[in-house]
Design a protein around this nucleic acid. Sequence first.
RNA 1: GGACAAUUAGCUCAGUUGGUUAGAGCGCUCGCUUGACGUGCGAGAGGUCACAGGUUCAAAUCCUGUAUUGUCCACCA
Length: 889
Amino acid sequence: MKELAKSYNPADCEEKIYQKWEKSGYFNPDNLPLPENAKSYTIILPPPNITDKLHLGHSSMLAIEDLLIRFHRMNGYRTLWLPGTDHAAIATQNVVEKKLFQEKGLTRHDLGREKFLQEVWKFLEKTQNTILKQIRKMGASLDWSRLAFTLDKPRQKAVAQMFVDMYHQGVIYRGERIVNWCPRCHSTLADDEVEHREQKTNLYTFRYWQEFPIPIATTRPETKLGDTAVAVNPKDKRYQKYIGQEFKGEFCNIPLKIKVIAEREVDMNFGTGAVGVTPAHSMTDWKMAENNRLEIKKVIDEDGKIRAGFGRFSGLSASEAGREVVKELKKNGLLEKVEEIDNALSTCYRCQTTIEPLPSKQWFVSVHKKIPRLGNKSLQEKALEVAQKEEISFIPNRFKKRYLHWMENLHDWCISRQIWFGHRLPVWYKGDEIYVNTKPPKDVENWIQDPDVLDTWFSSGMWTFSTLGWPDNFKNGQKTGDLAKFHPTQVLETGYEILTLWVSRMIMMSLFALEEIPFENVYLHGMVLDAQGQKMSKSKGNGIDPLEVINEYGTDALRLSLLIGNTPGNNIKISPEKFVGMRNLVNKLWNIARYMEIKFQISEIGNEQKNLEQLLQNKKLTLADKWILQKLQTLIISVTKQIKNYNFSPAGQELKDFTWNDLADWYLEISKVENNLPEKQQILHIILVNLLKLWHPFIPFVTEEIQQELFPDSGLLLISPWPKAKKTNLKKEISQDFQLLQEIVSGIRKARTEYKLSPQQKIKVIIYSPEKHSLLKEQVNILKNLQTGVEELVIKSQGAKIEQAHFLALNGAEIYIPLQNIINLRKEREKTKKEISVTKKFIASLEKKLKNKNFLQKAPAEVVNKEKEKLAGQKNKLKNLNEYLEKIS
RNA sequence: GGACAAUUAGCUCAGUUGGUUAGAGCGCUCGCUUGACGUGCGAGAGGUCACAGGUUCAAAUCCUGUAUUGUCCACCA
C-alpha cells in the first residue's frame, strides 16, 4: 500500500513534474494524440520584456492563460500556447544606457552606434533567459519549440516585409509633424507614451511690445520667441477689429512678425482670451499654422536648448531662457500679471523628462488612408467594424466601448523612433530619392540608411502572425502551415492598460496583412495591487516577489491566490494571508487523497473504469453516497460552464466548496461510520479521478503529483480528457433529504455547544417532523456516530403537531433547536402562496378594467396600452411565482 | 472637462438576467491534544448592502441624483 507524505511539499515535486510534462512533448500541439479535424485553440503569450523579472502581474497573466490552455487541451483542442519575449526598444536601451553610465561613465554617443548595440546584445544574453526560466516555475504549459523574440531573424524579416507592403500601398508615409520629443531619450514618443502630471505653474500675462494691442498669456515665455500669430475667438468683441492685421516689432530684442488670426477653438474666458501662436512648439498651434499658412519658426532644438539666431538666449536651456525672457519683460514693464494655475505637464513615460513638442520628419502609419484590398476602407474603419460586428468580443464587455471610443478618435501613428536598438527602418536616401525595400539597394554605398528604428509596438502589433510564420506561410492570399492551423487565435489575454497601446495595433496590423482578425476574444485582466490597493513598486517596498511566494507556499497556492477573487477587468488586491489560505486548500486536497488511499486503498482499483450507472443500481448505496455523486455531476456541469464563460473565480470557489465542505467535511466523515466499503471505494475513486481533472487547470502540480503517485498507469493528467457529467436517475429529493440530515447534525452540535455538554456525554434526541422522512430512520447510524454523541434517536412524524415539529427535544428536557430549513421553506411557501393570491386578484381587477367599455372608449390609447402591458407583466409574474412555488415544494 | 468603474461584515472580496434567512476567506470569541489533514474539526459574534429619491407585489440588484475613491482619455495659451 502506498502512503502519501503527511503534508504536501511543493518544493519536492514541482521541478520534477514540470520536466515530466516538458519531456512528454504535449506542450507542442503537433504531438497531441488528436484526430486530424480537431479544432485548434491558440493563445499567443503577450511577450514580456527581456529585461523583466517575473512579477505578480506576469504570474496572474500566466495563471489565467495556463488555466485556459490546460482546460482546452483536456477538452480535445489542438492547443497552442506560444511563448516569446519583447525587445522593448526604448525600455531596453534605457536600461543599458543607465548601466553604461553608472559603470563606465559613458553615454551611447561616446561608444557610437555599432559598439553600443554590441553592449545591448551582450546585456541581453545575460538577462534573456531569466524571465523564461521563471515562467516555467509558474507551471506554464507553453510550447517552447516555437519560442519567438520580437527582434530575431524571422521577426526582422516579417517587420521589414510589413513596412514595405504598407509603404507601397500608401499606408506608411513620411511627413513633418509636431512630435512629442524627449530631449533626454532623444526620441519621439507616441501620444500614449506621454504621461500627464498635474502641477502648479506660472501663467504670465504680457505684451510682446508696448504698442502691441493685445495682451496674451503663456506658461512658456521662451517659446514666444517663435510666435508668428495671435489667435483670438472670432466672436470676441475686444479683438474682432484686429483680425487679419499684421504687426511688426521687437520682442526681447528679437524681431517678430505677428498676424492676428481667428480660431473658434480659442476660449474667450481663459487668460486674456488671446493665444500667442507658436507653430513649431505646440500641437494645437501647428494646426492653426496649417489652417492659416503661418510661418513656422523653430526656437528649441533637439537637446531642449534655444537655437541660434535668438541673440543672448541662444544656447540656453528652455527653462533658463524662460526665466530670462520674464526678466526682460519685467525690465521693460511689459509683464502685466503673474498667476499660479493648475497645469498638466507632459513627461516621458520612461524617464519623466519634460516633453518638448518639436516639428520633425517622421514616418507614419496612416489610419485614414483607404485601402483598395480592404474594400476601400481604412485601417481605422476596419478596426472599428470588427468590434462593432462583434467579430472580436471583449471580456468584460465594457472595454468594447473604450476601444471604440479610442479608435474613433485615432490619429496617424508615428512609428519612427530616434533610438538605436530596435528594427531599423528599411529605408535608404540618396539626395531626395527614397528607396524602400526589404533588401538594401544594389549600389548601397551611394545611399544612406535611415538611422531610425521602429516603434516597439510595430513589431509586437504583428505578434499573432509573425510568430506563426508570416510572411513565408502566406502566399497569394492563402495561409499555410502554422498560420493556417492557428490563426486567428482564440484569446488575447492582457492587461487593460495596453488595450489602446497594443490591442488596437494588433487588430489593424492583422487586418492589413491577412485581412482577418488576430483573435476572437480579448480578455482583459486588472493590475495586481497590495492589500492597501497600492501599486506594487520597488520604491514603496510593498512589492511581493512571486518567486519567494513559490518557495514558501508553492506555485499552486500562488496560482490559486491570483485566480480566486480575481474578476476580469478589475484590479486584484493581494496579501500574504491569502497565500496561506490557498496553501492550506492545496494541502487539504492532498490529504483527502492521502486519506482515500490509506483508508480505502483506492489506488488498487487502478485505472479500471467504473461505470457510474451500474454503480447507481447497487442497492447498498446510502443517502450520502447518492448525494455526493449527484453533487459531483452538478459540479462538473457548473465548473465547465463557468470556465467557458471566463468566470474563473466562481469556478475555483465551487471546486473549493465541493472539496472542502461537501467532500471532506461531510462525505468523508460519514464514510467513517457507514460500512459499505466496496461501494465507498468505488465512489471515492470516481470522485478523486474527476476532482483531480477539474482542479488541474487551477493547480496543475499537486493534481499531477497525486495522479502520478496513486494512478501512475493512467498517464499524465495534462492530457486526460475533461470530465463529462453523466445523466443519472438520481431523484431531486436526495439533496433535500441530505440537507435535512445536515441540519439535524448541525442542530445537535449547536445544542451541545450551547448547553456546554462534555464530549463524552451521551444524549437522546427526539425529532418531531411534520414531513414524512422515512429516510431519516436509515440515517440513525450516522446521527449516532457522527461525533454527535447521540445514543438514542426517536423520530415522530405521524401525529406530530406543527408547533412541535421544528424542534429537537434534547435529553428528555425541553431543549429546543429550530430546524431552520424546514421552518424557512414553510414560510417561503406560505409567502409565495400569498403573493400568488395577491397577484391573481390584481390580474382579475386589471382584466375587469380592460373589459370596461367606458374605460376603453374614454381613456387615452397610451393609458390602455400601459394597462395591457401591466396585465401581461402580472401574468408573467404569476407564471414565475407558480414555477417558484413548485420548485420549493 | 469627458468616459468607465467601484462603494456589501474589522480586512479582502462573491452575490450572472429583481425572488429563499445578503455569502465566503482571513481576523476575532468559545469548545475540541477525535489515528487523512492543528496547513485540522465544531459552534458563535459581526452587515439599516455609501447617501437621497423613484419604479415594483418584491430592490444589494433596475432608474435618477449626490458624495467618496480609482482608472483611462483629452487639454488651454
